Amino acid sequence: MAATFAVVDDDLASQRMLADILNTKGDVIAEFSSGHEALRFFESGRRVDVCFIDLLMPDISGIEVVEKVLSMFPETLFVMISQVEAKTLMAKAYTAGIEFFIHKPINRNEILAIAERVLEKQRLKSTLEQIEKSLAEIRALKPVKDYQPNEQVIKKRFQGIFADLGIVGETGSRELQAIVLRFKDHEEELINLPLRSIYQAIAGNEEEIQSIEQRIRRVIKQALENIALRGLEDFYDEYFERYASKYFDYAEVRDRVLELRQKRTSSARINIRKFIIALYMDVLHDI
């Protein structure tokens, strides 16, 4: 059965563009120009697999819609889209229950990649639910211990990602790894805490915090440069498609590709929190 989507955006051009893109991955069965219209749809008992929703709308915010819908249909997956880059709003959106936060302008490759990722998560969840159901009787007889991710698996995931990004062996990479492991069971803190507090969690002393921040910023900039170089050669490069929009702000990667073509120095900014959260999700989720 084809996946079903809904699109909520008061900008009709963005709404239409999103619907056209998502129709290549499944069926867009509902489009709304306001949060209240979307709520009426869900309150009527109808639902979709994935809802792409704007953050700021005239009547009600996307975050409020997400919270209300998830209280009715917790299995619905939400992807939020906005021009806003305020970290506090992004953190609230993730706390409300969204899967991903995408910055406008809309990029086709980014939308398709994220749609596929959330649908894969849904398929995996469905499979796991079936397994859980099949094992219910066995668990009743003999409780199953909570599964702990194998350390070797986690280590290989870190190595694979850092190798793809061209930053294996860098000090900053080791500190990124330390942050992910430090917050392994505290995902919400990682999303909400100020970056300084995150660095402090792995620092030996106060003086070391600034050095950690500098090394992490430097290694993420190097990763962005390496991915941009791949995009310079081929926008459909496997690693460019995998990392450009997920680990970085796609607009910054695209601008850096243009700078490389014109042989100009980098003016790209980096989103450290987005990189860390993407790394956390890839390494620790779905293990």
Rank of each mutant, 00 (worst) to 15 (best):
H186D: 13
E207S: 09
I154W: 01
I202R: 11
Y199S: 08
G172T: 03
F158S: 04
P143N: 12
P194I: 10
E189G: 10
V168G: 06
A163P: 06
E206F: 03
N109K: 14
I161G: 08
I179R: 02
Y147E: 04
Q210L: 14
Q200S: 14
A113V: 05
V180F: 00
N205I: 07
R182A: 14
Q159W: 00
I191D: 05
F158V: 10
Q130K: 14
L112P: 07
E129S: 10
Q130C: 03
I202L: 07
G169Y: 01
N109H: 14
Y199K: 11
K125N: 13
I161A: 13
G166T: 08
V153Q: 12
K155E: 12
R157A: 05
G172K: 02
L195R: 12
P149S: 12
Q130Y: 04
I179Q: 04
G160T: 06
A113F: 07
V144I: 15
E206C: 02
Q122F: 00
E175N: 01
K121Y: 08
R174W: 00
P194M: 10
V118I: 14
E189K: 15
N109A: 09
L112Q: 06
E187A: 14
T127A: 07
R196K: 15
D185Y: 01
I138T: 05
I209Q: 08
E132S: 12
E189M: 09
I191K: 11
Q130A: 11
E129T: 10
F158T: 09
R123I: 04
A163R: 08
E137K: 13
L190R: 03
N150C: 07
E187H: 05
K145A: 06
P143F: 00
A113D: 02
D146F: 04
E116L: 14
L141A: 12
V118R: 10
E151F: 04
Q210K: 09
D146A: 05
A115C: 05
K156I: 14
V153D: 15
L176C: 06
S126Y: 05
G166S: 09
I209N: 01
E207V: 02
R139A: 03
